[in-house]
């Protein structure tokens, strides 16, 4: 088990390096060098730009140096000082802006993951055991519909319904009167009353996919010889179902977290724009549109890293559950 974890962590290192290179490339993608952007931004904000500031910036970002030096300067400041650079638009360190938002994004993504599991698991089992029943067809139909509906579209439809028929807007994570207040019971309850909508919206397509996966996995296992053995032991159908085929089918199900998490984070980012949630989505979109590249690049970098980390955790969890992986 320990060897397995060490090996997985070693595998992760090139991935992390590659992600940082990609993030850096994205920072550099917009045409023109940042200094132009900075000067443009600074003069637009009315600040006086003296040559000393420009020289300091030039040195700080390694402008004029070859790309790889720039990359090294950028990455070493992140690794050594936790310094992600400046948000040009707001003229504050990226650090001051992103962490709350990233926390909210990952909080919502993980809640969504739990929500998906809690429902997809029993529904998938039901759908497999009662294959070709009325219930199975209903589940399958909604599953396909969920897969085919982009989550932002679902968000828009739900918002339309609530505005049109309930006369209220459902955006945000808390009601407007709570936005700047300290945490209290009332605020927590208000949060719960709001947060279910993004969770359902973001989770819909993932849930549909997971139900189909669970159903297919279980159908694969349901007619295996070991199920017959368990039946021949005298176990009841229900307990043998949970004890054997469901347990085996559970593992590929758990391993889906590896691609679920990136998908959910992606979905959260689009949906949060629609529902105007205080998460990374609106901030990233705004940063990209205004070419505030250090902010955008840092968000992409950290969101990707956290996803990779989440995937690692899920792999370890999987090895812990499945002896076949643990003893490899």
């Amino acid at each position: 088990m320990r060897d397995y974890i060490i090996r997985r962590i070693l595998y992760m290192i090139p991935t992390i390096i590659a992600i940082s290179v990609i993030a850096f490339t994205i920072i550099r993608l917009p045409p023109g060098d940042y200094l132009t952007t900075v000067i443009a931004e600074l003069s637009a904000s009315g600040a006086a730009v003296d040559s000393g500031t420009i020289a300091a910036l030039r040195d700080r970002y390694g402008l004029g140096d070859p790309s790889y030096i720039q990359y090294l300067k950028w990455i070493s400041r992140i690794v050594l000082h936790g310094d992600f650079g400046l948000s040009f638009e707001k003229n504050v360190p990226v650090n001051a802006l992103i962490w709350d938002r990233l926390g909210a994004t990952f909080g919502i993504s993980i809640l969504t993951l739990l929500f998906i599991w809690a429902f997809a698991f029993p529904i998938g089992i039901f759908s497999a055991v009662r294959k070709y029943s009325m219930g199975d067809y209903v589940v399958t139909f909604f599953g396909f519909l969920g897969l085919a509906t982009p989550n932002f579209l679902l968000a828009l439809v739900l918002m339309y319904v609530s505005v049109r028929y309930f006369g209220q807007s459902v955006g945000g994570l808390v009601s407007p009167e709570f936005i700047d207040t300290a945490w209290s019971w009332d605020k927590a309850i208000d949060l719960v009353a709001h947060i279910w909508l993004p969770i359902v919206v973001i989770g819909a397509s993932g849930m549909a996919a997971l139900i189909r996966i669970m159903r297919a996995n279980l159908l694969d296992e349901l007619y295996r010889p070991y199920v017959v053995t368990a039946r021949a032991k005298g176990m009841s159908e229900f307990s043998l179902l949970l004890r054997y085929p469901v347990r085996v089918a559970l593992n590929p199900f758990l391993s889906t977290v590896g691609w679920m998490l990136p998908t959910l984070v992606s979905g959260e980012i689009v949906v949060s724009v629609v529902l105007s949630l205080p998460t990374t989505g609106p901030m990233l979109l705004r940063a990209l549109l205004s070419q505030d590249m250090y902010l955008a690049g840092s968000i992409i970098l950290i969101a990707s890293l956290m996803t990779v980390l989440g995937t690692l955790l899920s792999d370890i969890l999987l090895a812990w559950v499945d002896p076949r992986i643990r003893y490899q």
């Binding site: 590896g258 998908t263 969101a303 990779v308």
Partner: peptide
């Protein structure tokens, strides 16, 4: 590697 990165932010970064 490609699969472990959330696609939307990456697409957004490139498309922007």
């Amino acid at each position: 590697l490609v699969r472990s990165i959330p696609t939307i932010p990456l697409w957004m970064g490139m498309a922007a």
